[in-house]
Design a protein around this nucleic acid. Sequence first.
DNA 1: CGTCTCATTGAGTTCTGTCAATCTAAGTGG
DNA 2: CCACTTAGATTGACAGAACTCAATGAGACG
Lengths: 270, 270
Amino acid sequence: MHGLVRAIPKIEPKAQPCWCDDPFVARLKAHVDLGSADLHSLRAVIENDHAVKKRRDLVIDGYQYRKLSFIKEGFAARYKLLRNGKRQVVNVLVPGDVVGVPSSFLDRATFSVTAITDMKLQVCSLDDFVALCHRRPKFSLALCWIAVQEAASYAERVVDMGRRTSIERVARFLLDVHSRLAMVGRATESGFDLPFSQELMSDALGLSVPHLNRMLTKLRADGLITIDGHRVEFIDQNALAMLSHFQPFKLTQVPPATGLEPSVLLRHQT
Amino acid sequence: MHGLVRAIPKIEPKAQPCWCDDPFVARLKAHVDLGSADLHSLRAVIENDHAVKKRRDLVIDGYQYRKLSFIKEGFAARYKLLRNGKRQVVNVLVPGDVVGVPSSFLDRATFSVTAITDMKLQVCSLDDFVALCHRRPKFSLALCWIAVQEAASYAERVVDMGRRTSIERVARFLLDVHSRLAMVGRATESGFDLPFSQELMSDALGLSVPHLNRMLTKLRADGLITIDGHRVEFIDQNALAMLSHFQPFKLTQVPPATGLEPSVLLRHQT
DNA sequence: CGTCTCATTGAGTTCTGTCAATCTAAGTGG
DNA sequence: CCACTTAGATTGACAGAACTCAATGAGACG
């Protein structure tokens, strides 16, 4: 259990941006500062709220989708269905997350996104948003940061699937979901309501349902978690993080515009 | 082998942007149009070329890295080393690819990047690039597109690792590398020089070296490929793509600035 | 109260990893 | 120019992890 490389960095309590009110604005604000003029322009491109029923597909693999939709309420999963009938969930979406990355940037979507629960979304067309970006570059930088965050979290999933044991994957999944829910005020210190079925989780973790079930059973037997209905409580969150080498990453902020950038000016006149 | 979902979309020959001369400029041009004023500003932020020797780490997990480096020549791998000594390569980098996504956007890098061969890079500090983005938004949009492409390809890797058989993964890997090399003029119609060792590939595919070897042997035995030294030739590329359900995706272009965006103006005065 | 979804458990099989040995090719130094 | 070293490729035997299939149990909902 003890590593050979370097000491385990402490898992710091994350900053708590609250994406409760207006997820679209809040998520962008997590990366850049927005003045009132920015907010004004932003609201102009946001279409009305959009409700989606449980089990409906928001994005369908193979079809065009050109919107950025911010989740106000509810849960979704991004997945691909294979020819042999297997399904891989590449990630789960919680309030504050964005539907339409990467789908909107592609000719045709390469993944589907399905609503796991009833949902409320704030929608904006990608073209409108890009137009806004041309006028106010900080929005495109915020979008960069969102896309990079997405990439970083997929990369971490690749490591999970490739080189971590099934029990580690399950533990990490629970910790990851907890931390993301906590960030948007949907979890307590040590527990949360798990909105996913075991079938969904097994598809997310690349396991079979029976095997996932066995691993969950093991985590309970080892006294690390309790599960009552859909309620998950961590009994020993530290041990769980240790067992699974869980360690959230921190994005930087977008560097603000400084009028004229000194280090560039030194080398070249604009 | 035959699917239940829908017909296999044709694998179209991809557009051939040539990233041979100036990878930094060429890669951005793949996503947005750059005028001469743009190019002028861009060159101002690009630092001198940088050479890196084989086996050197460009980025080290846990340390800060705040540069965008475009690969002019040579190959690299982005990976994470686990406590138990296992390694997962999350992707391989070829000429035209960007080092520093996602590392530069994070507090501290969460992956290492190592040079597989001697390399030549074009380097630019992220801060300078962001400053440029504030002045010329199209650069930040190009960066978005790059980040999204990165995310999409990781997501595809997650599917690979989670739900595809080992032989499919190997075949897809070869096809993917071939298509990326072909795009930058490093491959012929049906073959290429594979710059990776089996150890590296097994770490990329989440397999053990012996098993990867068995699968390569099988692909040869089935008459799908030949391998002579580091030279790989596809004998039946179609069958290979069919077997592995390989299908490259296409990014859209960044929508150009249109001065004032009609659909926004209709809803709101700026 | 029946139906349906979801969770749980067991038995047997398959895939894939581990360990270890051998082989090849490419350098390297004398 | 050759013996020596070393990294990488290949092969085989075995063990263990995880899947499949199948049956059962438990709630939720109409």
